[in-house]
Amino acid sequence: MEIPGGVRSAREAGLVACQRCTRVWPAGTEVCDRCGHTIESRDHLALQKVWAWWVVGLACYVPANVLPMLSTRTLVIQQENTIVGGAVELAEHGNWGVAIVILVASVLIPMGKFAVIAALAMSVRHGSSMSRIRRQQLYEVVEYIGRWSMIDVFVVALLSSLVQLGALAAIVPGPASLYFALSVIFTMLSAQSFDSRMIWDPDAVVDKQARAAELRNRAG
């Protein structure tokens, strides 16, 4: 079974690598002799974990956008802004740069992560038109960029701790910040749960068809 691009997977080579210390063992080895880590060629529950974290993350993302992210109280006025509302307001005031940053960091990236993770998980099962190497790169980008999604939460935390001027003005994190942080965490967990080695496995669909053909041959 040739993998396009001429790359052979370790599994095809009858090998299995320790996930912790990267020592390669022959297929079938249960425990890494060097670090004692349990060795599995494929995590058969990985997709379930991905989807589980993904659902929770998405669930948290909804209140994170609906509830106010930041509560600004000055002497005269008390203002609560959602993430998108704040960005729009900033844009209306002319701060396009900041507004774009917020929109990218708080909306575009999380949404992109959800979409990418879902797409990767789907591609493992149903195959994809995208090349395997491209998908691997995509996964790496998602995993890398995921930690920066917390920048929103950091901003809120900084502002809240800095702007506490008693009765004159105060900035209090809204409930959305908590949900946003949870959403980011769950998304990162979801991305980490994905076993990227499955990208290189033969498509499950092909596999299934092959297996069905084999069973027919046996019977025949």
Partner: peptide, 17 residues
């Protein structure tokens, strides 16, 4: 063995919600 323990998390979240 077939179902990941992680599914508890969405369940908890659902219950909390």
């Amino acid at each position: 063995e077939r179902v990941s323990i992680v599914w508890v998390i969405p369940l908890i979240a659902l219950i909390i919600a």
